[in-house]
Amino acid sequence: MLKSKRFFTYLFLSIISFVSIFPFLWMVISSTNKSVDVTGGRLLPGTHMMENFRKLLETTDLQLSLVNSAKISITTTVLALLIASLAGYGFEVFRSRSKDIVFNILLLSMMIPFAAMMVPLYRMFANVSDTLPWMGVDTMTSVILPTVTTAFLIFFFRQSTKMFPKELLEAGRIDGLSELSIFLRIFIPTMKTTYAAAAIITFMSSWNNYLWPLIVLQSPETKTMPLLISILGSGYAPDYGMILIAIVIGTLPTAIVFFLMQKQFVAGMTGSVK
């Protein structure tokens, strides 16, 4: 009885794992095959990968989209970490009743659906397009600004600050450091893992962001990877091999980050509810 239960457990978990991994395998294998073979159901690696890649470079501006995505996600990540950790630290270290009220109001923003903000946000950026062209519609700034501050990340840093040893803080004050340099020179280096977790989460959601860039980026020169993939995938006569290699390339950065930093990644996802 016990043995058969064990067997069922392994069988069930193996099936679930297989289903989870299979689309990845299929996408990598298919990116090495001709389009005909992909539709023919071929499940063995082929020799067509370079050909698919070459076609992708010919039909799209892959490098440009990769650079756009990288610029946006890296800038967003650096700024988001700085802004949110300053605030999370501030709300916890300089705790007061009025700040707690403000903090709770900020948390309410997590309930606001993006669908309800996208039209006013679009109009805000469209309105400044003439006077401030560098932050109007179709600029990197317009993609970054609305996504750079999240109450979630502030909350995450506030929770982590509770773990920060108060003795270090006092020691810094006794040494005569200013509050800002305590933050910069003691807090940041001590909380490296917290920053790593936050960086991964922010980078991933920024790299994968679709709806807002779809609305605010309109010219081909500003397209990010998800937009490029979406456009390729919506064609009526898709070249499967070529599109799948684009998807593989678009997924690589986040997959690499995940495998290199799995522990921090999981800590980042669950950190908010500890």
Partner: peptide
């Protein structure tokens, strides 16, 4: 780890 767009396609 996949983007919503990538896995959807």
């Amino acid at each position: 780890v996949t983007s919503l767009v990538a896995y959807a396609i």
